[in-house]
Amino acid sequence: MKTNHLKKGSTFAAATAIVFAVSISVASAASFTLKIGSGQPMKPIEPINVANYYFVPTIEKRVAAETSHKIKFIKLWSTVSSPFDVLENVQKKLFDIGLFCACFEPTKASHLAFHYYLPMVTDDPITQLKITRKVYSEFPEWEGDTKKFNQTVLGAPAFSSYGIGTTFGWKKMTDLAGHKLAGAGLNLPWLKLLSDVTVIQTNLNEAYNSLQSGVYEGVVIFPPAWKGFKLDEPAKYYTEVGWGATTLYQMTINNDTWASFPSEIKKIFNEEKENWMLKASQMARKKYDSSLAALKKDGSTLYKLPYDQRAAMAKAYDSWANDEAKKLDAKGLPASKLFRRYLNIAEEAGIKLPHKYNIK
């Protein structure tokens, strides 16, 4: 009788433990609804495009398959925010996750677009991504600076290299003298530092009419955007200048949102952000090549600026690059150290720099 009593007690204890474990599992399962957004349209911009078609659905599927939790995204691409307000909207948690160009945040996040200050390193987005991620692994405080705005950078893919579309042909830097050329934001100094060039601030919405009417004669731009906005109709020349690939477009997540995730969800995010960066960079390289092919097919004259001319341009930027490093140093960022290390890492990766900037 005593043995039977013990067996019954053991069976009851085991059953109780199972029920308790199941109840804990059910109680710990959570559902998250996340707002992800941008201030620009999704389809033409590679980081947003890949976020929409790869990152978002993959996170949802993996969380459902690999954890007891669920995530649902609400996608707000270019609907409730301007390009200039995304960082602030993540800070306020109007977005849980935001995608924005660091070029639109000149006072808060221009350091994340530091390639602007060190142009002409590499035209290849995938190479740029690799060397930049290595730099950031050695300087975590660089991306970590966004924590003051209650958000964390998940990553930034690389765009394809900048060139310039014009209404006239040119072969060397001095040929640009006397012409009216346009740019936007952080790429304007690339033009201003060239001798006798009239520089005009612009945006893509007004570029077609401005080129057609002669307000200006050229625009600093990526080939996909040049072709996508049909700017090859009023201006039939495109030059691969080699200003370089850039990791401009950031994906940040609100720190309160991130803190609410269990570790298994954070693990999935950390894995998929790497895939997102690589896939978006691969798309950028593919679109660069296909856009140049389309321009040639449709009658544009293409030209690739020779290495010696790239070197001449880069030398013109030397003191400016150092000045920009010192401005960021004054904000408490290790810019001079990071700039020097970035150039060294580029050389270690086999890149032959047209000019190695003298960052003091």
Rank of each mutant, 00 (worst) to 15 (best):
L278P: 05
W243Y: 13
V121D: 01
Y116T: 00
F114Q: 06
I59L: 15
E274F: 07
F168K: 12
Q91A: 11
C101P: 00
R285A: 15
H69Y: 04
K2N: 05
I74H: 09
K266Q: 10
S336D: 00
K147G: 11
K326L: 11
V86E: 03
K326N: 08
F73H: 04
K236Q: 14
K70N: 08
V199E: 07
T16L: 14
W243C: 06
G39P: 05
T174V: 09
W190S: 03
K70T: 14
S291L: 08
S260E: 06
N4F: 08
K352M: 08
M42C: 13
E274C: 04
I359V: 11
T146K: 04
N209Y: 13
D298N: 15
T257Q: 02
Q128W: 01
Y237R: 09
A158C: 10
D124T: 03
I126V: 14
P354S: 09
F168W: 13
Q282S: 09
W77E: 08
Y307M: 10
K230V: 04
S110M: 08
K326S: 10
L302H: 13
L295G: 00
K147V: 07
I126K: 14
P306R: 05
L328H: 01
R62Y: 06
C103L: 10
Y342C: 03
E46C: 07
P189Q: 02
W276R: 01
L211W: 05
S161A: 15
T16I: 12
G178T: 10
P119I: 07
D196L: 07
R341K: 12
T16K: 07
G242T: 00
K327A: 01
D232W: 12
D329H: 10
N150I: 04
G218A: 07
I253A: 13
S260A: 09
A225T: 12
F339W: 08
I131H: 02
E233W: 08
N49S: 12
T127P: 02
D318W: 06
I71N: 03
A65L: 13
G39V: 02
S336T: 10
G165D: 05
A225C: 04
N344K: 14
Y238C: 01
I59H: 04
D323S: 13
Y307K: 15
A30M: 12
K148Y: 00
T79V: 11
K61N: 08
